[in-house]
């Protein structure tokens, strides 16, 4: 059983993100690495490795669409235990919306061939749309299983999973192949091992371009998100409630909250 794990490089959660007047976004992280594996994807990567350890997966292939820098994210996936990594990178793919991205990833998964499970994080922390998994499933013609919190069983060509909906936990079964998006409850991602990091640093990561993939060129984007700007600062400063006793503080705060009509 071949498993593909789709991952994206994103700004780190602690990155300081700025935008200039032309809407050009840049970031830096003075305390650490400015770019990381999208934190939600770590659960997908870990689940892929667990499918190898517990469910007989033979190959766990990390796949990313992005620029050359995204090889860092793929190296992290390799260091954690993925068996291979592939970068899809082409100027022609720049500025794709989620559907364009899904189309490219689906074409890459088809090129890998004989894949039974494609894993995604539930969303990326930069765009936060959470659409790519379902859209890639549509382009592959596979069943999408989103917000998966546990893989229960894989047998006789079917997979049984637990999903987290807004109002409860659902257990569903579907025939393979499937696309799965994972939530945090599914596992606890491991740290890359020292040996894993050494191996990942030596790994040769192939780069596939548009010419290598069967995508009809119409990747593009129907969505315009060119207008990006800074969050307006919150108006006014905090009002610290001070008094001689906590009971008095509680009374004063309650007054405020009733005045604000939020209770």
């Amino acid at each position: 059983m071949k498993v593909v794990v789709c991952t994206k490089q994103t700004p780190s959660t602690t990155a300081v993100i700025t935008v200039d007047d032309n809407g050009h976004v840049s970031w830096d992280d003075p305390g650490g690495k400015p770019n990381v594996v999208n934190p939600w994807d770590e659960y997908g990567i870990e689940e892929g490795i667990l499918l190898k350890e517990n469910h007989g997966a033979t190959d766990v292939i990390a796949l990313s669409l992005g620029d050359e820098d995204s090889k860092d994210a793929l190296k992290t996936a390799l260091a954690m235990g993925c068996t291979e990594a592939i970068l899809v990178s082409d100027e022609a793919f720049a500025g794709s919306d989620t559907l364009g991205t899904a189309r490219v990833l689906a074409a890459a998964i088809n090129k890998i061939g004989a894949v039974q499970v494609a894993l995604f994080g539930k969303q990326a922390i930069d765009g936060d749309t959470g659409q790519t998994a379902v859209q890639a499933a549509r382009k592959l013609g596979w069943t999408p299983l989103t917000f998966v919190s546990a893989v229960k069983e894989i047998s006789d060509g079917r997979i049984t999973v637990e999903r987290l909906a807004d109002d409860g936990k659902e257990t569903v079964t579907a025939p393979l192949p499937v696309v799965i998006s994972t939530v945090k409850e599914i596992n606890e991602p491991r740290y890359p091992s020292f040996m894993g990091i050494r191996k990942a640093n030596r790994a040769n990561i192939p780069v596939w371009t548009a010419a290598d993939l069967d995508v009809d060129g119409a990747v593009g984007s129907k969505v315009d998100w060119s207008h990006i700007y800074a969050m307006p600062p919150r108006e006014g400063a905090v009002e610290i409630i001070e008094a001689d006793s906590v009971d008095e503080q509680a009374r004063l705060l309650a007054d405020k909250l009733f005045e604000e009509k939020v209770i």
Partner: peptide, 18 residues
């Protein structure tokens, strides 16, 4: 989110999310 993503993919339509 699932429904919108599915329909957008099948209609080749743009999706502005969230």
């Amino acid at each position: 989110r699932d429904l919108a993503a599915w329909v957008a993919a099948d209609l080749d339509a743009g999706l502005a999310a969230d």
